[in-house]
Design a protein around this nucleic acid. Sequence first.
DNA 1: TCGTAAATTTAGCCATGGCTTAGTTTATAC
DNA 2: GTATAAACTAAGCCATGGCTAAATTTACGA
Lengths: 153, 153
Amino acid sequence: MPPMSADSAKRAMERPLQEPDAQAEAFAVVRQAHQMESTEDYVELIDDLITSQGEARLVEVAERLGISQPSAGKTIARLQREGYVTSEPYRSIFLTEKGKSLADKSRERHDVVYKFLLKIGVSDATAKIDSEGVEHHVSEETLDAFRRIIDAG
Amino acid sequence: MPPMSADSAKRAMERPLQEPDAQAEAFAVVRQAHQMESTEDYVELIDDLITSQGEARLVEVAERLGISQPSAGKTIARLQREGYVTSEPYRSIFLTEKGKSLADKSRERHDVVYKFLLKIGVSDATAKIDSEGVEHHVSEETLDAFRRIIDAG
DNA sequence: TCGTAAATTTAGCCATGGCTTAGTTTATAC
DNA sequence: GTATAAACTAAGCCATGGCTAAATTTACGA
Ligand SMILES: [Mn+2]
Ligand SMILES: [Mn+2]
Ligand SMILES: [Mn+2]
Ligand SMILES: [Mn+2]
């Protein structure tokens, strides 16, 4: 073992390692969230497009995600396999019950995060950007804390 | 275009779509964050292990990430290719200057998120879990807002 | 010292989600 | 109605990050 610097010794005292199991569990939760992340973003976007424009076309989904049409199309195919959307070749995309319900849940959570960031003084542009990533990693407990602050005055 | 429900009409008014470019940019930022995410988690963990236990062994990195040793080993190999760590076969893992500096930056940001969650009333266990994911998606602007709240009273 | 256990590496599997290029179908404008 | 443009699909590439099984190296205790 190499010798320890004064700073390192101090940091080791103030910031002890977690239990291995607890730490592994936290990373597992993050991996699980990432597995759902693109599904959530897609169904939320599809639902928003249907609401705002009457239908969700692949070309618009791809443009708003900032990826190529074939990439978006491949993920839509997975979502169809998994029962979140339906669509026939060359036609627009629809949400199943399962997809609609996930979209509603995701939008609600996304909105809480977005409004919370605005509430604590983050700019609108930054709140939009940060909430797009953060939304997938907040537990119900944290969302409740966010809601309390949104509702406080 | 199918007809619109009353709820949908209301939602379309209250929650208009973003500009396509702005929305695409937000998703691009999230994808960029995800590209750095495992790198940040690894160097932060390796640095913590070196500080607390004198060295970082693959077996411990894998255990704390909750993944198999070969999976961790493969990512360590990438980190070495990219200049974040060094290690010789069957030996422990060291951080380069680049790796150490990323570890310090990541730990600082992680700690801000963790302390912020505690401050707004989230439990310790949940704060540990949520901060592990959220840390990668908070901008400097949002971190400053978090710091203000941590420092307030 | 030497045999066994632990740690590490190697090889190869899989899913996801990016990409480009080229072909096909549908929509539009004249 | 038909030519052209737009939208979509098909095929195939790549990197990441999971996994298991098997080989190899190192560490350790008797
Ligand atoms: Mn969202
Ligand atoms: Mn998102
Ligand atoms: Mn994430
Ligand atoms: Mn993390």
